[in-house]
Simulated assay, not measured.
Amino acid sequence: MSLEASPEAPAGASSAETPAGVLDDWGDGAKVRRAWATRGLPAGLVALLAVGLAGTALYIGATAKIDRAPRWSRDLLERAQTHVWRDDWTIAAGLIAAVLGLWLIVLAVTPGRRNLLRLRSPGDAMTVYMTRRTAASFLRHTALASSGVLDARVRMGRRKAVLRVDYHFRDPDELHDELLERLEERAMALTLARVPRVDLRLQPVSGR
């Protein structure tokens, strides 16, 4: 679980000033914003690349103006002007650049930090998160507390928690109803901003 200062609303702001879709909710399906990552490494790499390319271009342009360009820069300019950009290396470099550019765009428009689930906020200036692993652990221990349950595996998502439960010596319908009720109560007690829907799947250990 983590605490972060929320950039979405200043301290002392009223609920009427909070943007639509950002209000904390107990699970009625309202939109809940995810935690955004800082993206420090990609941003640093892009900045270094941009500075390197801009510095090289500025150096070549400045030296060419005073007729003191080094031989390698003259060769580079000549090759850029006369080369036919159709060979395999050029195509491969273009594809790599396109993939990297698409990757950077995806990083820019997605929040990242998929392992965090937002909790109901205790205040306008604070945002609280729980890890998916922690939430899954709560649900798993709830399932294991029921008689007849041997093991439980949980895949925790933002909207749905899928539980696969191994059991024996229990009526499946009775166990399903009992477990589903307990798991839904536990999911509600987690105080997540969006209460996940519980998808319960039972598997008898005998294989019948």
Score class of each variant (00 low, 15 high):
residue 171 D to N: 15
residue 7 P to G: 06
residue 94 G to L: 14
residue 50 A to L: 15
residue 99 V to D: 04
residue 139 L to Q: 01
residue 48 L to Q: 12
residue 69 A to M: 04
residue 175 L to T: 10
residue 186 R to I: 04
residue 132 R to H: 00
residue 66 I to N: 10
residue 175 L to V: 13
residue 188 M to T: 12
residue 141 H to S: 11
residue 127 T to E: 03
residue 153 R to T: 15
residue 68 R to K: 14
residue 93 A to K: 05
residue 67 D to C: 13
residue 23 L to D: 06
residue 113 R to H: 08
residue 74 R to D: 06
residue 46 V to I: 11
residue 60 I to L: 07
residue 18 T to W: 12
residue 37 A to V: 05
residue 97 A to N: 05
residue 123 G to I: 00
residue 64 A to H: 15
residue 114 R to A: 14
residue 123 G to F: 02
residue 171 D to S: 14
residue 60 I to F: 00
residue 109 V to Y: 03
residue 42 P to C: 06
residue 58 L to E: 04
residue 130 M to K: 02
residue 102 L to I: 12
residue 7 P to E: 05
residue 4 E to Y: 10
residue 62 A to K: 13
residue 121 S to Q: 10
residue 137 S to Q: 11
residue 91 I to F: 12
residue 28 D to W: 07
residue 26 W to N: 11
residue 72 W to F: 05
residue 16 A to G: 08
residue 191 T to M: 11
residue 94 G to H: 11
residue 13 A to E: 03
residue 70 P to G: 01
residue 51 V to N: 05
residue 25 D to Y: 03
residue 154 V to H: 00
residue 84 V to C: 02
residue 121 S to E: 09
residue 153 R to H: 14
residue 175 L to Y: 11
residue 129 Y to D: 01
residue 179 L to Y: 07
residue 84 V to F: 01
residue 108 A to Y: 04
residue 58 L to P: 00
residue 118 R to A: 13
residue 19 P to F: 09
residue 150 L to R: 15
residue 52 G to P: 03
residue 60 I to N: 02
residue 43 A to M: 13
residue 173 D to Y: 07
residue 79 R to Y: 09
residue 135 A to P: 01
residue 9 A to N: 08
residue 117 L to E: 10
residue 143 A to M: 04
residue 82 T to H: 11
residue 138 F to W: 12
residue 127 T to S: 06
residue 31 K to Q: 13
residue 26 W to V: 09
residue 192 L to F: 02
residue 174 E to Y: 10
residue 163 L to S: 03
residue 208 R to S: 12
residue 103 W to A: 10
residue 71 R to Q: 08
residue 190 L to F: 00
residue 97 A to H: 04
residue 167 Y to F: 14
residue 73 S to E: 03
residue 190 L to S: 01
residue 81 Q to H: 13
residue 4 E to F: 11
residue 22 V to E: 12
residue 126 M to G: 06
residue 176 H to S: 15
residue 50 A to F: 13
residue 66 I to A: 12
residue 87 D to M: 04
residue 8 E to K: 06
residue 184 E to Q: 09
residue 30 A to T: 11
residue 70 P to W: 00
residue 40 G to F: 08
residue 146 S to Y: 11
residue 68 R to H: 11
residue 140 R to A: 02
residue 59 Y to K: 12
residue 26 W to Q: 10
residue 148 G to F: 11
residue 154 V to M: 00
residue 151 D to V: 09
residue 62 A to S: 15
residue 21 G to P: 08
residue 41 L to I: 02
residue 40 G to W: 06
residue 65 K to N: 10
residue 198 V to N: 01
residue 115 N to R: 15
residue 195 V to W: 01
residue 208 R to Q: 09
residue 190 L to W: 00
residue 197 R to Q: 13
residue 157 G to S: 10
residue 25 D to I: 08
residue 81 Q to E: 14
residue 40 G to K: 07
residue 59 Y to Q: 12
